[in-house]
């Protein structure tokens, strides 16, 4: 099964192996015809209607504005309904540096997003800390804080790169399984096991609830 996209040849994509791996994983246990079709319908809806959260901390945010403007027009893909409330958004484009003071706020924003939620780390700062990596007040990449689906390198990435990144996310969404597949909450657990920072936060949250 090839994950096709309108007016973009399959060979033009990079990271096809990664998507194929996901497809393999999806196929591994076989699926019911009805459920499979429903899954496809749901994935079609989700992948074509990714609403971003208006979230930007620095330079990359301005390129995100350009992405919405007439020249690059992300509305073409159905991404233009940028929601200011995290409850209504589907993905978060982390455009800019996340610093120590912002990290808890950022994590809270992520927690406020409704499932299914995705994160795109956009630009050098979000990926690794970028030029500010050695600073005393900068998180060295957001991967310690939230699970990331797509990385878009650049400083800042040009809007074309952002479009490519969101399209890659859309491809990933297309091979998800809504019924009986890998549960996103399990993924969350895996992520927690890897990230000590998030682990600690989880403990605190659980502690508060108890």
């Amino acid at each position: 099964m090839e994950v096709t996209t309108k007016s973009m040849p399959y060979e033009a994509w990079k990271d096809n192996e990664y998507i194929e791996g996901l497809v393999e994983e999806l196929r591994a246990n076989g699926t019911n015809v009805l459920v499979g079709t429903l899954d496809k319908l749901i994935n079609w809806g989700r992948s074509n209607s990714l609403w971003p959260l208006t979230f930007a901390t620095s330079c990359c945010g301005i390129e995100f504005v350009s992405l919405g403007a007439a020249r690059f027009d992300m509305a073409r893909f159905g991404w233009e309904v940028a929601r200011s409330s995290p409850r209504q958004a589907d993905f978060m484009m982390v455009a800019g540096t996340i610093v120590n003071r912002m990290a808890p706020v950022f994590r809270r924003l992520y927690d406020q997003l409704a499932e299914p939620k995705y994160v795109i780390a956009c630009g050098g700062c979000a990926i690794s800390g970028g030029p500010f990596r050695k600073s005393y007040h900068v998180a060295k990449g957001i991967e310690d804080i939230v699970p990331v689906d797509v990385f878009v390198p650049g400083c800042p990435p040009c809007p074309e790169a952002m479009i490519y990144g969101i399209m890659q996310l859309s491809r990933k969404v297309k091979v998800e399984r809504f019924f009986g597949g890998v549960n996103r909450q399990e993924k969350q657990k895996e992520f927690l096991a890897d990230s000590p920072v998030a682990q600690k936060a989880e403990e605190i949250i659980n502690g508060e609830q108890a």
Binding site: I42, G45, R46, N48, S49, G78, D90, A114, P116, F178
Partner: peptide, 9 residues
């Protein structure tokens, strides 16, 4: 597409 997504969100 928006409707399908919003229904199962």
């Amino acid at each position: 597409a928006d409707m399908f997504k919003i229904l199962i969100k």
